[in-house]
Write a protein that binds this DNA or RNA. Structure first.
Length: 718
RNA sequence: GGACCGGUAGCUCAGCUGGAUAGAGCAGCUGCCUUCUAAGCAGCAGGUCAUUGGUUCGAAUCCAAUCCGGUUCACCA
């Protein structure tokens, strides 16, 4: 039973509401009573009081002066007086600074809060609200192991699910596995051609990595085979192609060789070369210097070189740059067409067709290799502490959606073009026309998602369906929701895209071509071993068993990594700096874990009976500043949790957990004339000892719960 | 070109439903372990909140324009 059900004669109305909500409610009443205005709690603006003033919360009264017809100071005074008179249990005193009404919350409020909440190991948990929500996240492809980008997705999805649960939602964690398609066939084909029967068992390699290696192998063969085709095309030899493609290539080739265009592109190439050469003379950080030259910043140079940089910059005109870009695009098109003509790509495509036709041999290989991957994923998920309630597989869902398209066609939501392809016109909504079914009747990506959205809804009838997917798919989900709404699907309005920014490395995006992709398993291993290294250096847990140590290192290493990825607002792209991510000082997971361990060590000084006896104790003396401050911050957890749920943002929780831990550390270390001001064990009297034990216990519980919402465990000792 | 997102300290980020003198962490510099865990604490230094205009008693926050960076507008997924 949550502590909230405990009735408390004097303060019962407040126990159901946060302090801030109570103040807003009371202030609204005051405004109604004093000025006969239909003000609601939601109209009141309450801030935490700046530390230099007396009080904990501040009401901004400027908005009331319109109808109070008094100066801000007088208005604030009138409301303060009314509040102190009518809500003495809440407002013990107030002071006015300009239009700011600073309220001192009654100490009794804080002491009864800490009494009721301190032993609740489930702080913040809201009662069920009767709403069901599905969170789809992770959604890996089965041709490659997980990488850093997946980690942000996994941690976000898991954390948001936990946050919603704590807010009273029933949550279904779903994982839609992309287990079919050309990319899987690439791995399969390369395995057939080059593996000589290797398996995870025979090689000792984790299944997902083994399959990923063959995918990479495929890509390198593909590159080798495409190269000569590309060269031939560039020479005007289209013998590798047939029909329409030849015509397309003739056009591309012609465009590339238009004299003026060609001259511009060649000029651009030469200028780039010269700029790079010049940059190299200035600094080893050639890339940075080049980008400064391009921006018209010549600060790296002096005298003649500066003039040279300037003139190079000027020669690289917008027209030349534009042609350069066009040329890049044409080259990409040629490359794509050539890659598709390679022998190995043709084989992969045949394999995909065989898979779709249900060819037993291909299906068997597919089953086998996927099972290797699942075994690998299973290990990774388990280590990460990530779980799911429902697995969907694209091999089961990729044909869905066609019937919905048929319905939409009948309803007139979609229309057919001459080639039989089916489209929806979204131009009225500021978007474009979108293809939903190819001319040959086959699905595209969105067709599948339309069908899967219906399937999910049929399975669970949830109120909301959240997709944790990177922000490069913002347009896709906008379109998906719009289409579902136009179809009148009951699931439509509940569709929400939890869009998150890409994880970048200090030197830019991860690129598989450049081998800068950070593997998830490798990263975890490095975080854990770094945690071990730090822990050993400090030597505080020498009495731990092997098993206990292993678990502690996992807790700290994973805690550092999860916290690092979750502390940033999801919608923003973030930079993953490996050095900072394994840091254990400052705004990090280990800092908070350490604070928790420290509190636990205080509590260990006392017997279970001492701690149990706290439940019936309510402090009656005045509170010292940091005592009040800590209780206040603990009390804000409920509001923070609600906000994190509203915003679907674990970073709100991360910031809060850090603030709480930091505040406790200040409380813990505060020293006056050689003595700890807030010592628990050596408190000035028994009452203070009990109060501080309650505060310590409450803080440990809140920290543990907050971290749990981030998927991070906290140790008893570290 | 259209749409969307971002630009806050040297770096990484909070703050953005308008409120008091814009905050953390890291990096730099000072101090603090005979003491409930120094993975800590206290302090110093560091800012034209991209720019310009507007709304307002009040703007980092809202509006408009501009500049810079990113994503996207595929019969790929």
């Amino acid at each position: 039973m949550p502590f909230r059900t405990v009735t408390f004669a004097l303060y019962h109305q407040l126990i159901f509401m946060s302090v801030v909500a109570s103040i807003k409610q009371a202030a609204a009443e005051a405004v109604q009573a004093l000025y006969q205005q239909p003000f609601t709690a939601a109209d009141v603006s309450v801030n935490t009081t700046k530390p230099e003033f007396e009080g904990e919360y501040t009401i901004v009264v400027f908005p009331f002066t319109k109808f109070s017809r008094q100066k801000p100071e007088e208005t604030a005074g009138a409301i303060g007086t009314w509040l102190a008179e009518h809500h003495p249990a809440l407002v013990a005193g107030f002071n006015v600074v300009k239009g700011f009404l600073n309220l001192s919350v009654h100490d009794q409020f804080w002491t009864s809060f800490v009494q009721n909440a301190h032993h609740n190991t489930n702080v913040g948990q809201q009662p069920a609200n009767g709403k069901k929500v599905m969170v789809e996240y992770s959604s890996p492809n089965t041709n490659k192991p997980l990488h850093l980008g997946h980690l942000r997705n996994n941690f976000l999805g898991f954390s948001v699910s936990e946050i919603l649960k704590a807010n009273g939602f029933e949550v279904v964690k779903a994982n839609l596995v992309n287990d079919r398609g050309i990319h899987i066939c690439k791995s399969m084909l390369a395995w057939q051609l080059f593996a000589h029967g290797d398996t995870p068992e025979s090689t000792g390699k984790k299944g997902d990595h083994l399959v990923g290696d063959y995918y990479v192998h495929f890509e390198s063969i593909l590159r080798d085979q495409a190269e000569p085709i590309i060269s031939r095309v560039l020479e005007g030899n289209f013998g590798d192609f047939e029909g329409e493609q030849v015509e397309k290539l003739i056009k591309l080739h012609a465009a590339l060789n238009k004299p003026e265009f060609k001259a511009n592109v060649e000029k651009a190439e030469k200028l780039r070369h010269d700029i790079k050469a010049l940059a190299r003379t200035a600094s080893a950080e050639t890339k940075e210097v080049v980008s400064r030259i391009e921006k018209g910043d010549f600060s790296d140079f002096e005298g003649e070189d500066k003039a040279r940089a300037k003139s190079l910059h000027q020669e690289l005109t917008p027209a030349i740059k534009s042609d350069e870009e066009k040329a890049d695009k044409i080259h990409d098109d040629i490359k794509e067409l050539s890659r598709n003509r390679t022998e190995i790509m043709q084989q992969a495509k045949i394999m995909l067709q065989q898979w779709e036709a249900g060819n037993p041999e291909v299906r068997a290989l597919w089953q086998t290799m996927n099972s290797w991957v699942y075994e690998g994923f299973e290990k990774t998920y388990k280590r990460l502490g990530i779980d799911f309630d429902k697995m969907y597989f694209e091999s089961n869902t990729y044909l869905l959606g066609k019937d919905v398209v048929e319905e939409g066609l009948r309803k007139g939501v979609f229309f057919k073009k001459a080639d039989n392809s089916v489209w929806i016109d979204l131009t009225a909504d500021g978007l474009d026309e979108k293809l939903v079914l190819r001319g040959d009747g086959t699905s595209v990506y969105i067709t599948q998602d339309i069908g899967t959205a219906r399937l999910k809804y049929d399975d669970y009838h949830m109120d909301q369906s959240i997709y944790v997917v990177a922000d490069e798919q913002n347009y896709h989900f906008k379109v998906l929701k719009l289409i579902m709404q136009k179809l009148g699907e009951p699931s439509a309005d509940g569709i929400a895209h939890l869009s998150y920014g890409m994880v970048e490395l200090p030197h830019g995006r991860m690129k598989s071509r450049e081998g800068t992709v950070v593997d998830a398993d490798d990263l975890v291993e490095e975080m854990v071993s770094t945690a071990a290294k730090y822990t050993e250096e400090l030597g505080k847990v020498k009495d731990f068993t092997e098993e206990e140590l292993r678990e502690l290192y996992e807790t700290i290493g994973l805690g550092a990594m999860k916290f690092f990825l979750l502390k940033v607002d999801p919608k923003k792209k973030m930079v993953f700096n490996p050095e900072e991510s394994i840091d254990i000082h400052g705004f990090t997971g280990p800092f908070i874990q350490y604070s928790h361990a420290r509190i636990r060590s205080i509590l260990r000084e006392f017997s279970a009976e001492d701690l149990a006896a706290l439940a019936s104790y309510r402090h009656n003396d005045a509170l010292l500043p940091m005592e009040k401050e800590l209780i206040k911050i603990n009390e804000q957890f409920g509001e923070v949790l609600a906000e994190a749920g509203r915003e679907m943002s674990p970073s709100v929780i991360a910031n809060y957990a850090f603030l709480l831990a930091q505040t406790f550390n200040s409380f813990y270390a505060k020293k006056e004339s050689g003595k700890y001001t807030y010592s628990v064990r050596d408190a000035e009297n028994e009452d203070k000892r009990k109060l501080r034990l309650q505060i310590a216990s409450l803080t440990a519980n809140t920290i543990r719960q907050a971290m749990k919402l981030l998927g991070i465990r906290v140790p008893e000792r570290m």
